[in-house]
């Protein structure tokens, strides 16, 4: 009898809320779902974050310039990177190739970017054509910079 009464009380919504196991179970379940939801959201945000893409694209472009020869035209599909920049609402210069400092700087968010150096001595021009980044490797820089 006592067991039955307890069972009835546990599914009764009219009793004291704090005493009802169904509320505590639902509360417990919601907390667990919230916890794992936040955890999965964090993993997703981290794995699709700008830092990973900034680093990989900066190094990819840097290594392509290291391996290039004058007259080459390099085309890099940056659709993934542009999608990340769009998600971050960043409309600045995504990729900058600074031939004075020999640096490739990739920025996909307003919080910063990633820089990587290349060692070749070429003059380059670059720009986006749709979602592709095109680099034209020109001749060697005319005046060799003075050694620092």
């Amino acid at each position: 009898m006592m067991k039955r009464a307890r069972l009835v009380r546990s599914f009764s919504l009219s009793g004291k809320k704090g005493d009802s196991p169904i509320y505590s179970n639902i509360f417990f379940l919601i907390l667990n779902l919230a916890f794992f939801g936040i955890l999965l959201l964090f993993i997703h945000t981290s794995s699709t974050g700008s830092l990973v893409y900034e680093q990989s694209y900066a190094k990819e472009i840097g290594l392509l310039l290291d391996n290039a020869q004058p007259g080459m035209k390099l085309t890099i599909n940056m659709a993934d990177a542009l999608a990340i920049a769009q998600k971050n609402k960043f409309n600045g210069e995504f990729v900058k190739i600074d031939t004075n400092t020999n640096e490739v700087i990739v920025k996909l968010s307003s919080s910063g970017g990633y820089t990587y150096k290349f060692f070749t001595n070429y003059d380059v021009s670059s720009g986006f054509v749709g979602d592709k980044f095109v680099i034209n490797v020109k001749n060697i820089k005319d005046v060799l910079k003075e050694e620092k």
Binding site: P70, N102, F119, N121, L144, K145, E146, E147, K148
Partner: peptide
């Protein structure tokens, strides 16, 4: 090697990574 191999002298200076 710097001039003929198209390497930038500023990158290969003192404290270089290469």
């Amino acid at each position: 090697v710097l001039k003929d191999c198209n390497l930038d002298p500023t990158i290969f200076g003192k404290g270089s990574d290469y």
